[in-house]
Design a protein around this nucleic acid. Structure first.
Lengths: 221, 221
DNA sequence: GTCTATACCTCGATAGAC
DNA sequence: GTCTATCGAGGTATAGAC
């Protein structure tokens, strides 16, 4: 499992979203040790912060290189293009999100499974909201081939939520009219966290507990 | 009240998000009749479609002008900058969303009010998902001054949801532990619709009814 | 593997004719 | 109010020295 540890200082909320000043986002390089050499890792973590702050299109290769303490040209020794950098971030992020969900899906009763899954998925989007922002909001910038690769993982993620809801309906613990629509709603709750979350706002674990509770109330019989 | 009627053909979902091919988004000009002259209106609706499809940063003034059937230079007769175009769209969109919510907030019991508000707010994000995407996801591209102006409206929107939840807690019809957190969750449900909605997927009114039901289950005592 | 220098392109916005 | 033509800036990516 990839353990991401992203620390940012932002002041985002529903009302001041995306206009945080003095943004000093620093993605911890320690947890990306599998990305070698260190220069490639510095570029990757710098790109995560830049993409999360400004979006892919507004981020320049000069900005990414500068965050990594390099000249613009040095980037191309490690990555063939800016899009490739986005793809690697997006792929790692999707894999990590799926693995978080899979690990949480271990209980016996559907209610326990759903609680654990929503809690973990929500907390991940809060704790790693910089990566999550790239994962959820920069898909359109991927090449069609790279998009197809992450789309497979996205289908697996939504299938996991739909399955636990279906199991709950089958054993009578859940009452869900529109299975597909409710699946999307449960996913929305967690995913939208990436849009507004700021570390100063709430503890990821607490938020996960709250959202798991809300999701259960949404579906319980 | 501004009545937006946006018709787009897209194939977006949680899994194929942002990679729709053959996107032929056409924002109906009829409902923008207050934007004069017609050339300015064509530019505005073209910009809505372009910003919703590609994002503000990836959209060129040449693209906007071309959608309006003009040369790049003609844009600057009607708008002083690309950012100003975004601001006008964002401002209209926020005003429309707030007005939708205000109109819906007319019932007596908090449960009736919440149902109507979530239903209308959700249906608006589906029906007008192109504008909603610009409203919800392009805030960071606004100038600080223009952002401050729309932020006022955003605060009013979240305050309306928080108020109906507080009223429900006060009269015992709702049971809400974390008022602010639950307000954000209810808002998230509707707002995230703008990210994944496609007209082929579901009727806006049906989606609104489903989400109103889910929101009520989240908060009812 | 990093640098400086730069090629080549496209961008937002402007000038000036009609 | 629209056009053609273009400016100046800044973008991605490359060349070649070290």
């Amino acid at each position: 499992m990839l353990a991401f540890s992203v620390v940012t200082k932002r002041l985002l909320s529903f009302t001041n979203l995306g206009q945080g000043v003095n943004v000093s986002a620093v993605t911890s390089p320690l947890v990306w040790e599998h990305v070698q050499p260190p220069a490639a890792r510095r570029l990757l973590t710098g790109a995560i912060d830049a993409f999360a702050e400004r979006g892919f299109q507004a981020t320049t290769t000069r900005d990414i290189a500068s965050r990594a303490g390099m000249s613009p040209a040095a980037l191309y020794v490690h990555y063939p293009s800016k899009e490739r950098l986005l793809f690697e971030i997006s792929l790692y992020g999707h894999q990590a999100a799926l693995e978080i969900l899979t690990k949480a899906d271990s209980g016996a009763a559907p209610a326990d499974r759903l609680r654990a899954m929503v809690s973990a998925f929500t907390a991940w989007h809060a704790e790693h909201h910089t990566i999550a922002r790239v994962v959820q909001y920069e898909l359109a910038a991927l090449s069609p081939e790279h998009f197809a690769e992450v789309a497979t993982i996205r289908r697996a993620i939504s299938a996991m939520i739909e399955q636990v809801l279906a199991d709950g309906v089958a054993d009578g613990s859940f009452a869900v009219d529109d299975l597909h629509g409710t699946t999307l709603a449960v996913l929305s709750l967690s995913i939208d966290v990436a849009r507004w979350y700021s570390p100063s706002r709430q503890d990821p674990a607490e938020l996960g507990a709250l959202y798991a509770d809300l999701a259960l109330r949404m579906v319980q019989a």
